[in-house]
Amino acid sequence: MLTPSQVIENYFLESRHQILEIAAMMDRYDVAVQRRGGNGAAGPAPGQKIELLRKALAIAADPKPAGDRTVALLELFATG
């Protein structure tokens, strides 16, 4: 089993990379919506999925979750 500092040391860069990828995707989405001329052009399905991702990010970032974040996220994605 890893110590808290080992968890951070081992996975910080990988997590940084994954968060940057998610942020870039969110930026890419905003640019695409703007290019199409406003919020409505995104359509309901993409709009629901992006909201799902935003909720997921909030769950992942929760410093004191009630249970495992992974379980909560899988349950959230099961609703989408």
Binding site: H17, L20, E21, A24, D27
Partner: peptide
């Protein structure tokens, strides 16, 4: 790079921007 620098997707984002 796989994790420490730019990724292919982010590179294309910058090319488009």
């Amino acid at each position: 790079y796989p994790i420490t620098k730019c990724s292919p997707k982010r590179a294309v984002d910058m090319l488009e921007k």
